[in-house]
């Protein structure tokens, strides 16, 4: 009873803050929008893919093992598109992985702070250039160069090699900056221990620091692969249009992304085999890149556990 008489008690009492709760709800919705995006992607791609696979003449087995992609005559084998995606990705990685790692080692283990300060932003500029510009670069610089090198009879105007190499240059800064972060996270004491045993800078970098940062570097490599698989504009411009089942990188062959871009660039009518097929390929692409990203994240998390 005594308590009730104290006016302070009333003052302390909770008052409803409708505004605050409302805003918190709005903020939560903002966060949920990103989840809805994922659900939307899975749902829409899934729905259209389902329509695609229920079309007469289309089977999952045929899709995964067929060597001809000719929607006009009802042939839907993804292998031609997949192989050219893998070939361009392979050449991209041939450039991006060794050079990216080399650049990361140089920046993290060798470069003076001053050199770092000028080289790093230059690589960042490379990362900020739109991919369509790289496509232009591939077609107008890399391809003529390759034709000069190997002869214009053997190198087609549109070819996977040119697209792959330029894609490698595009991905290089991504790989180098992620690898450098991993190298950077290796404790100083490890380097000092190696130097203390009389190792050269190179031996320290390659035999001590790189192995210690290996999982971080592998995570960077996988992200690089994922980026190459999903890259569209370079291959759409330089790798050629029209699917071809070929393993010769000097030939033209359309990739998965290139096909999606070409088909949707025209006025494709809804609910046609072509329309549904780009979603099926998109689903395939989504699953590949998602798996790569998840693996990379898992490996990177393990790396962080060790050093943080």
């Amino acid at each position: 009873m005594q308590i009730a008489q104290n006016p302070l008690v009333n003052k302390l009492r909770k008052k409803p803050r409708i505004g605050e709760n409302l805003i918190q709800a709005v903020l939560l919705i903002c966060g949920i929008i990103s989840v809805l995006t994922t659900i939307g992607i899975v749902f829409e791609l899934g729905k259209e893919s389902l329509l695609f696979f229920t079309m007469p003449g289309v089977t999952l087995k045929g899709f995964l093992t067929g060597t001809s992609w000719q929607p006009a005559i009802g042939e839907f084998g993804i292998l031609p598109l997949l192989t050219s995606t893998l070939i361009t990705t392979f050449f991209a990685m041939l450039i991006a992985l060794p050079l990216g790692l080399g650049a990361a080692i140089f920046l993290s283990e060798y470069a003076s702070p001053k050199a770092r300060k000028t080289l790093k932003p230059a690589l960042e500029v490379l990362a900020g250039i739109p991919t369509v510009v790289y496509g232009y670069f591939a077609l107008t610089v890399m391809t003529p160069f390759l034709r000069l090198l190997f002869g214009s009879d053997t190198v087609q105007i549109y070819n996977m090699l040119s697209a792959g190499l330029v894609m490698g240059i595009m991905i290089l800064p991504l790989v180098s900056s992620m690898s450098e972060d991993a190298l950077h996270a290796v404790p100083r004491s490890l380097r000092e221990a190696a130097f203390g045993l009389g190792a050269t800078r190179f031996e320290t970098a390659v035999k001590v620091v790189v192995p210690a940062a290996l999982s971080g570097i592998i995570a960077a490599f996988i992200i690089g692969i994922s980026r190459a698989v999903g890259e569209t504009m370079i291959v759409a411009i330089a790798a050629g249009s029209g699917s071809a089942f070929t393993f010769n990188p000097l030939n033209a062959a359309e990739t998965m992304t290139g096909y999606i871009a070409r088909i949707s660039g025209g006025d494709v009518a809804y609910d046609t085999p072509e329309y549904n097929s780009i979603f099926a390929i998109g689903m395939f692409l989504f699953l590949i890149t998602l798996a790569l990203n998840l693996v990379s994240r898992r490996i990177a998390a393990r790396f962080r556990e060790v050093y943080e």
Binding site: I41, E44, S226, G230, E231, T257, L285, F286, N293
Partner: peptide
């Protein structure tokens, strides 16, 4: 919930832009 949102945002950042295009086209 927040863990789901965070994981989800990290994964969204790695999805190829053309897939967003497909989403935009369909929705």
């Amino acid at each position: 919930l927040s863990r789901i949102i965070k994981t989800n945002i990290d994964n969204l950042a790695g999805i190829p832009s053309i897939v967003y295009g497909l989403l935009g086209l369909a929705i």
